[in-house]
Amino acid sequence: MNNLKNIKKTTLSKEWATLDRIDYDYQFKNDEWKSVSRECYNRGHGAAILLYNLEKGTVILTKQFRMPIYEANKEEGMSIEVCAGAIDHNDTALATIIRETEEEVGYRIKDAKQVLTAYTSPGALTEKMFLFIAAYNQSMKVNKGGGLESEAEEIEVLELPFSKAIKMIKNEDIIDAKTIMLLQYAQINNLIPAKAGIS
């Protein structure tokens, strides 16, 4: 980029992820150069999946405690979401979501279709989410799910009618962006038949 120069990065924290302050000069459309400072949180990329059952008209979601939500609003804290996980350095997004599906919700899938890619909060996070869909049925259930104790996870597995999940967005019972994107993708693309009660 010709309108960007003098980039200086200062690491502020390097714990679970890395927080940097990045100072730079940016040329605006009026040709004026301005010095800008932004904080940038780098936690890698992630993958998420919407599991759906055409015959039953249902989807699999999860429910778990999220400290940042509680920090923002002490009246909240629990979050209803699609199954998701961070992509390890040596993994692909697909391999990650296949593994996370079995760990979090107890279904063993062989493949999934990537339908969307999105930065979750590009003003502050480097994280890009790779969003998948896959069909499931009861024969794929291999364990109860719930996440890994080693990662301090306590995940409740929810099997909900698709129509109810859509209403939960409208009622703000579902407030997680990646989950809203995948559910609305399914709705826009008529992924689940009308007989499932989509409204």
Score class of each variant (00 low, 15 high):
residue 1 M to P: 14
residue 2 N to C: 12
residue 3 N to A: 04
residue 7 I to K: 06
residue 8 K to P: 10
residue 9 K to F: 11
residue 10 T to R: 15
residue 13 S to Q: 04
residue 13 S to L: 05
residue 14 K to H: 14
residue 15 E to V: 11
residue 15 E to K: 12
residue 15 E to N: 13
residue 16 W to H: 13
residue 16 W to A: 03
residue 17 A to S: 15
residue 21 R to E: 06
residue 23 D to R: 11
residue 23 D to G: 00
residue 24 Y to G: 07
residue 25 D to K: 13
residue 25 D to P: 10
residue 27 Q to L: 06
residue 27 Q to W: 08
residue 28 F to W: 08
residue 29 K to P: 05
residue 32 E to R: 05
residue 32 E to F: 01
residue 33 W to G: 03
residue 35 S to L: 01
residue 35 S to N: 14
residue 35 S to V: 09
residue 36 V to R: 14
residue 39 E to M: 00
residue 41 Y to D: 09
residue 46 G to L: 00
residue 49 I to S: 10
residue 51 L to N: 01
residue 53 N to C: 04
residue 55 E to M: 03
residue 56 K to Y: 03
residue 57 G to C: 05
residue 57 G to V: 02
residue 63 K to S: 11
residue 64 Q to A: 15
residue 64 Q to D: 13
residue 66 R to S: 11
residue 66 R to M: 05
residue 67 M to T: 03
residue 67 M to V: 02
residue 68 P to R: 00
residue 70 Y to F: 13
residue 70 Y to N: 02
residue 70 Y to W: 04
residue 71 E to W: 00
residue 71 E to C: 00
residue 72 A to D: 09
residue 73 N to Y: 04
residue 74 K to D: 09
residue 74 K to F: 06
residue 75 E to H: 08
residue 78 M to E: 12
residue 79 S to C: 07
residue 80 I to W: 07
residue 81 E to V: 06
residue 82 V to A: 03
residue 85 G to D: 03
residue 86 A to V: 10
residue 87 I to Y: 00
residue 89 H to Q: 02
residue 89 H to T: 02
residue 91 D to C: 04
residue 91 D to W: 08
residue 91 D to A: 07
residue 92 T to H: 00
residue 93 A to W: 01
residue 93 A to S: 05
residue 97 I to Q: 02
residue 97 I to G: 05
residue 98 I to H: 00
residue 99 R to T: 00
residue 100 E to R: 10
residue 101 T to W: 02
residue 102 E to M: 09
residue 103 E to T: 07
residue 104 E to A: 12
residue 106 G to R: 03
residue 108 R to L: 11
residue 109 I to T: 13
residue 110 K to H: 07
residue 112 A to V: 10
residue 112 A to E: 13
residue 113 K to D: 14
residue 114 Q to F: 05
residue 115 V to A: 04
residue 116 L to G: 10
residue 117 T to P: 01
residue 117 T to R: 14
residue 120 T to P: 08
residue 120 T to G: 15
residue 121 S to T: 06
residue 121 S to E: 14
residue 124 A to L: 15
residue 127 E to P: 07
residue 127 E to M: 14
residue 128 K to S: 07
residue 129 M to L: 14
residue 131 L to S: 11
residue 132 F to M: 01
residue 140 M to Y: 11
residue 140 M to P: 14
residue 141 K to S: 13
residue 142 V to N: 05
residue 143 N to Q: 09
residue 144 K to N: 09
residue 144 K to H: 09
residue 147 G to M: 15
residue 148 L to S: 10
residue 149 E to I: 11
residue 150 S to I: 14
residue 152 A to R: 13
residue 155 I to L: 00
residue 155 I to S: 02
residue 156 E to C: 10
residue 159 E to Y: 05
residue 159 E to D: 00
residue 161 P to F: 06
residue 161 P to S: 03
residue 162 F to I: 01
residue 163 S to R: 12
residue 164 K to A: 01
residue 166 I to R: 12
residue 167 K to S: 11
residue 168 M to V: 01
residue 168 M to W: 04
residue 170 K to A: 06
residue 171 N to Y: 04
residue 174 I to G: 02
residue 175 I to A: 08
residue 175 I to F: 11
residue 175 I to G: 03
residue 179 T to G: 06
residue 182 L to Q: 11
residue 185 Y to M: 14
residue 186 A to C: 07
residue 187 Q to V: 09
residue 192 I to F: 12
residue 192 I to Y: 11
residue 192 I to L: 15
residue 192 I to T: 08
residue 193 P to T: 06
residue 194 A to G: 15
residue 196 A to T: 07
residue 196 A to P: 05
residue 196 A to C: 08
residue 197 G to P: 09
residue 198 I to L: 12
